[in-house]
């Protein structure tokens, strides 16, 4: 086993999150410490980037808040991420959706991926 992997197996949190891709709409529930109180803040938006590998990977979530685009980078292995909820799977052709930064309104929508589910019949 490589040394870096060994170190992270000892130290890093082993939380399991649902799989998500760029284009998906997710909610990240993030722990925030104010003074000595801890509360959970949720950040809902589209994943526009997944970067890095292993325990140092990050992902970027973009949302439009009061007409202003807000992007936030989350480290995937951060102990402060409480949970991740995948709201919608997006149908996109790129791994990095930076073109979303130039778009607004209707053109900034991401087409939802339609899945064929057999068990509902």
């Amino acid at each position: 086993m490589s040394a870096i992997k060994y170190v992270h197996e000892q130290l890093s949190s082993k939380k399991e999150f649902p799989a998500f891709k760029p284009g998906d709409n997710i909610t990240v529930n993030y722990k925030i410490i104010e003074g000595n109180k801890e509360r959970i803040q949720s950040f809902k938006g589209d994943v526009i980037k997944r970067q890095g590998s292993g325990f140092t990977a990050t992902f970027t979530v973009r949302k439009i808040s009061d007409g202003v685009g807000v992007e936030r980078v989350f480290p995937y292995s951060s102990p402060n991420i409480d949970s991740i909820v995948v709201n919608k799977a997006g149908n996109v052709r790129r791994a990095k959706l930076f073109y979303q930064r130039k778009r607004s309104g209707k053109s900034a929508r991401i087409r939802e991926k339609r899945m064929i589910t057999t068990d509902s019949q």
Binding site: A3, S12, T56, S78
Partner: peptide, 21 residues
């Protein structure tokens, strides 16, 4: 020197570290 990575402390602060054997 083996390589670099970053780890989190319990409060969520990320620190860049070098692993040395």
């Amino acid at each position: 020197k083996i390589g670099m990575t970053s780890i989190f402390d319990p409060s969520g602060k990320q620190t860049a570290c070098t692993i040395i054997e």
